[in-house]
Structures are given as structure tokens and as C-alpha cells.
Design a protein around this nucleic acid. Structure first.
Lengths: 162, 162, 162, 162
DNA sequence: TTTT
DNA sequence: TTTT
């Protein structure tokens, strides 16, 4: 009943964005979360461990991803886990686990400091929050996130292949 | 940019539901989460500690709360923190922290198993998930929650006092 | 930097628990989360969708899993995503995504099991919360969860294969 | 049974850190999360809304807060809600809701500081993750967070006033 | 393949 | 009292 993922990490590659006939879009990109290593009690070294998450962002979030997310960007991503199967080139069934993003926040765009907000024209998305949820469910939203870039503007949501 | 609360606990009293002229509704009820006590290293006893959360559910969630939530119900609540001020009977300014629910799940309605789902007519809400989000924000929703009772059916959301 | 998963769902099969020489244990079991289907605006039916999560619980949590979790049990699981690779019987590299549990809560008054017993003296674990975290990291814990069954009692944690 | 808060926001003032006889420390600071305003369907303007959270960080996290967190710092905070009562100067009982931090992550590439330096040798804490949990509960921890600054180094945890 |  |  609850399938929720919360990630804070860095984008590994520029998003790949595909557009569909019906004006829909989907973006895919990898996000790294690194778990710091440590020493065990008996002195063994456990190294850092990086987990790569396959992020999938539909519709409005896809377009935002295309515009504002790139290799190295630090993100907050809230979404859910989806495992899908596909047949590889040899007809072998493969499984892939992805994170379907519901909300994306751009982090750390050089805010900080007590001033330091100099030349920002190039950074219109600082701290922006992107919230995507399916109007198809007729949900209401009192999202806590900054909503300047939520997916609601992206047109019909009816015939999505998922 | 992110203000998220996740609670699993038990309802302390039947919800109080108020209706407004514009067909809006709001439900209020207390939810308890208990933190188990423990013994410190030097033998001190730290007792159990119960935290009471003031849950506020608007619109569709309010109506669902009225129908399905009562004293003792175990719930999953996802929402956000809101502190509001008000003047008490003596004109003294008071502050109250509440949890605005975005999603509510009824837990433990004897579901389980692939069997054991005998006499269920009386339990139409098993594992139901209630998802409320403001259509006013034109958000899309691909909610991961079971949506049979989301708030989207509750009519206009335009002139809410919050 | 943050890799957090929160699940509420039902256990699909009794846990498989393996013990190691050094008194360590690990439990594996599948957990289902079901996303309710809906109708799109243009009348298409999107069916329910069940996601199966491979839960991995180490040490104390494994032992608790063995004792209290079985097919049908409704659980709250908090953990993190781990994808690991292995070679299948044909020497083909495969990937598997698992959820490493950090906290497990048994949900429901009369949770779990195909038996679903009546009065509760025999069910000391109702609503229990299991919290597992590696002492190897010398962490402190002020866990918000009921801690009656946390993993701290399970002995040395030094030479774990992960 | 679950009382979890996840916040991403900006620190409003430099932390106040108090030390106790037993080498314990506690830090307090406000954290702002801003919910973006929006227009309702009928054209009403709902303004931005900033929620201020009172963050409380004990022990190791307190010391880290003192060193690395200041006004303006963007943080990820994971913790739990605690409401406590106290008598004000006039003997009137007051209530205050606080967030007890269990994990803190410094966000942003070039976070914190009024200087905002270029190359990073002087900023060993960038993206660091601070994890605090009570050893008094004998918990294990396989924290997903970068653990370079968890609270485990801070000495005896036995006689804490909470 | 990111980041520190 | 932060940030955009």
C-alpha cells in the first residue's frame, strides 16, 4: 500500500529525454547515492558503496529534467520502485528496477551563505521543486513542495504506456 | 522545500468533522505514536513515550475519515507539519502544531494471506489508501497508493481557507 | 547521500532464514505493495499493479523475521535499496535489487498469519517495531520506533559479508 | 509506532549550542521549509508559506551542528516530532513542538559559509551526513548515510535528560 | 556514470 | 529567522 523512495544524490549523466506523438515525454537518468564506508570493530575496512538508481520522470518532470538536470546535479527525488521486465537482444528476459519520480528538487544551487546570490540569471531553478502526479486519478494536491515546476501543465495524461 | 511527515499509529478519538457552506469538509483527530522506552547503560529506566499528533484532513479525506476512521484505528499518515497561531479564550496567542494529511492508509484490517479473507463485506476499506492533493495546483499524480478513496471526487477546491 | 525506502505491504511467503558460522543470520522474503488501478480521462482502464520487493533482514531482524513474520503478515519496512549482481546457473551475470531492512514494524491488531488468533496474550509482538542498525558504525540511536526487538542483542557484527 | 520527519530547508539562524557537565551537548536552530503558493481555479492567489521547524540535535550531532551549520545552510534533516510543555515567565503552561534530528545532511556543492570558497580542501564536510542514534538502545546500524560524522564518537550517552 |  |  505504500511504496515510497526518498533519495538525495548526484546525477551521473545528462538525462535522456524521449518525446512521444501525444506530446508526452519521459526522461531517464542515473542517480548515485553513496554510503560511506567504515571500519568494523575488528579492524576490517568496509569501503564506500555507491548505489546507482535509474530515475524515470514522465511528462512535465521530463521536460524539467531536460532543462535543469544534468551530470553532477544534486537532487532530492521522491518516487516509487518499479521493476519491469524486457527481452534483451538475445531474447533473454531481463529485469530492471527503476525509480518513478513523483517529486524532484534541485538542491544546493549555491544558495547558502548569508549573501552570495550574485549572478544568478543562469540559475533560475535554484531550490526548485518539481511535483508530478497523475491528473488521471483526479487527485487533489496540497503539496508541501515548491510547485513552480509541477507537471500539471503538460497536457493530456490519458494514454500513457504505463 | 521538503516538509514531510510519516506516521504509523493509533487514533485516540473519533474524528470531529466540520462541513462548510461550499461543501468542503475538514476532519480533526489525534494520532498516537509510541516510542518504546529502554534502559540506559548505567541502568536508568527511560519509560515509554507517547507523542500525540493533531491530524487534519481536508475535503475527500475528511469524508473518508468520517466513514472509516475511529478511536483505535491503526493508520499510516503521510503529510506535512503546519504550525498555526490562534487567540485563546483570554486573548492569549497560542500556537498549535498540526499534521496536514496528504495520504491516509487504514492498516491491519485483517487482510493478510492469500486466504483468510472470509467475511469481508463489512470491511470494504481493507488496506485502502486515501490520497489528497490540491487540484488547485494542477498537479499530476501517479500516486503509489491505492487510490480508491482519494480526495479528487470532492468537488471544487478553490476557496479554502488555508 | 540519502537512500531510503518506506514500504507498507503484505509478505508473500514465509521468510527463508539462513544462519552463518559466526552466529549471524539473514532472512529473505518478498513483500507486495499494490498500487490501485484507475480510469484515465478517456475511459481507459489501468489495472491494479503489484510490485514485489525482495526484503533482506540481517542479524537481529532476521531472527525476529523468523519468529514473527510469515506469509500474509502486513509490515512497515524502512530500509535502503541495494542492487547486487550474481552469476546464474549458466554463468550469465544477473542483477537483483533488494531492500535492506533497517526497521520493521508488524502492523495490524491481529496481524499476520493464516491463523489469526483471537485474544492477544500470545502475541507479544503486536505493533512491535524492529530496528536494526550496524553497531560497527558506532552509531547512537534515539529511534522513534518501539524498540523491543531491535537487533542490538545479536552479538558481534564485525565480519559480515556486506 | 512510526514518527518520522523528513525536511529539506534552510537554516534561519546560527545554531545555539549548550554543553552539559557530562560532556553532552545539544544544538538548537530553526529550519525553514517554504511551500510555494499558487493560484486557485477561481483566480485567488494563495501566497508562499514558510514553516519554521525547531531542530534539536544532541550529542555528536550538536557538535557537528556547531562546526558546520549556520544561517543559510541548506540541510536534509531526518528526525521525529516531539512536543514538550514548559511554564513561561508568567507560570503559564506552553507547548512547543520540536524536531529531534536523527540524521543531518549538508546539501549543496559549496555549502555553508559566508565565504563560499572555490576549491574544497578546506571543506571536508561537503555533502557529509550526520547520523545520531542512541547507543543506549544497543542498536545496530547499517545506515545508508555517509557516516563520517555520526554521533557515536561523543562518549557516554547514559544520563541524558530526555 | 555522480559526488566528497 | 532561511531560501528563491
Amino acid at each position: 500500500m505504500v511504496n515510497k523512495v526518498i533519495l538525495v544524490g548526484n546525477v551521473g549523466k545528462d538525462p535522456e529525454v524521449r518525446y512521444f506523438d501525444n506530446d508526452q515525454a519521459v526522461a531517464n537518468f542515473p542517480l548515485a547515492t553513496t554510503e560511506r564506508g567504515f571500519k568494523t570493530r575488528d579492524g576490517q575496512e568496509v569501503p564506500d558503496r555507491t548505489e546507482w538508481h535509474n530515475i524515470v520522470a514522465w511528462r512535465g518532470l521530463a521536460k524539467i529534467a531536460e532543462s535543469y538536470i544534468k551530470k553532477g546535479t544534486q537532487l532530492y527525488v521522491e518516487g516509487r520502485i518499479r521493476t519491469r521486465s524486457y527481452d534483451d537482444a538475445n531474447g533473454v528476459k531481463k529485469y530492471m528496477t527503476e525509480i518513478y519520480a513523483d517529486t524532484i528538487n534541485l538542491l544546493g544551487r549555491r544558495n547558502s551563505g548569508d549573501n552570495d546570490q550574485a549572478t544568478r540569471a543562469d540559475q533560475p531553478m535554484q531550490h526548485a521543486s518539481l511535483n508530478q502526479q497523475s491528473a488521471a486519478q483526479n487527485n487533489l494536491s496540497n503539496s508541501s513542495d515548491q510547485g513552480s515546476f509541477n507537471a500539471g501543465d503538460s497536457g493530456p495524461e490519458d494514454d500513457l504506456p504505463f
